[in-house]
């Protein structure tokens, strides 16, 4: 028997199988590696540097010295940081509390529209395709207290005194935070409607038929069939909406300038991070705030996953 014709050993069989398997998957690794490389370079590396920077202090003349938790302690004692965090949470909660019910109602109505539904969807979705900076510039005019579009309309309707909107930093329903929330709802409504609409159209008709046989009215069907069936959609929107709101920056920056005017009422946590780093040149404090922000997003995502998504994934499996 020539060596060429000898049967392969058990080991070489395993290696060959692995090689075949790898060869088959090679092309897929080829597709995955470039984006992975980009993620490591542009997200992984800066994240690691931010963690490192948060525990070091720059020394005048160059170099760094280890500072431990010093910058985190500074952060905890900084009322501006807490104000920015409070604004971020408040604006995020207000946004979700308004936009989810509103988009659900509008999507349910849109779902019933037989003619002209597509143009309506396009119209609702258009703000989503517009630059958030452009929208903020537009709303800056809309909410200008003395000659803005909204107060001009209210003046015609005889409202007196007129709301101050962007000139009012207090916690009121007609202050700067309310204006920023209306802007965010207007800009995000189209996306929420489209997602809820997709959720509505995935509900089996059998459920509605069964409800009708049981004598449910349209409102009862909506309450007892539609809303529970939209649970995964709501969870998805709450999670992505929360993360989006936590990272809010460009529209607030455009409305309120670098300091989140008036009186920092529009300063979000990301604006705080930016201002400490690039205006105050305090990159260590900025990095510490970024780390805290990272941890908050991680906690929100973990709660969402363990509390809601895991159950949905299990149901799918």
């Amino acid at each position: 028997m020539t060596p060429e014709s000898s049967p392969p050993s058990r080991d070489s069989g395993v290696v060959a199988r692995l090689r075949r398997a790898f060869r088959g998957a090679l092309v897929w690794y080829g597709f995955v590696l470039p984006p992975l490389f980009l993620i490591l370079v542009f997200i992984g590396y800066p994240t690691a540097i931010a963690f490192q920077q948060s525990m070091f202090t720059e020394v005048p003349g160059g170099g760094q010295k280890f500072a431990g938790t010093y910058h985190f302690e500074r952060l905890l004692g900084d009322p501006v940081f807490w104000g920015a965090l409070g604004n971020t949470v408040l604006l995020g909660v207000a946004f979700l509390v308004i936009i989810i019910p509103l988009s659900t109602v509008l999507a349910s109505m849109l779902n019933r529209v037989r003619r002209g539904a597509t143009p309506l969807k396009v119209i609702y979705f258009l703000p989503q395709l517009t630059s958030s900076v452009a929208i903020a510039i537009l709303f800056h005019y809309v909410f200008q207290p003395d000659w803005g579009l909204l107060n001009g309309t209210l003046r015609l309707l005889g409202v007196n005194p007129l709301p101050l909107w962007l000139a009012e930093p207090r916690y009121t329903l007609t202050g700067s935070r309310a204006a920023a929330t209306i802007l965010a709802v207007w800009a995000g409504l189209g996306y929420f409607i489209i997602v809820v609409l997709a959720g509505l159209q995935s509900i089996p008709n059998d459920l509605y038929d069964a409800a009708a046989i049981d004598g449910a009215s349209p409102v009862q069907s909506w309450w007892y069939v539609t809303l529970p069936s939209l649970r995964p959609t709501f969870i998805f929107l709450i999670i992505t909406g929360t993360i989006d709101q936590l990272a809010r920056f460009s529209d607030l920056w455009t409305l309120g300038g670098p300091g989140g005017s008036p009186a920092r009422s529009l300063q979000s946590i990301v604006m705080y991070i930016f201002q400490q780093g690039f205006v105050g040149s305090d990159f260590s404090l900025s990095a510490a705030a970024a780390v805290v922000f990272f941890v908050i997003v991680l906690i929100v995502t973990s709660i969402a996953f363990w509390g809601f998504l895991r159950r949905e994934f299990s149901a799918v499996r």
Binding site: P79, A167, E168, P169, R170, P258, G259, S261, P262, A263, R264, Q275, V279, G280, S281, D282
Partner: peptide, 28 residues
Amino acid sequence: ASQPRFSLQNAIEAAIAGTATPADALAQ
């Protein structure tokens, strides 16, 4: 173009809006 400008600007806004007294705003 640095932090003192923005701190002072915030103090002025807070005082004009009435969310802080002028003395407290300047102290901050």
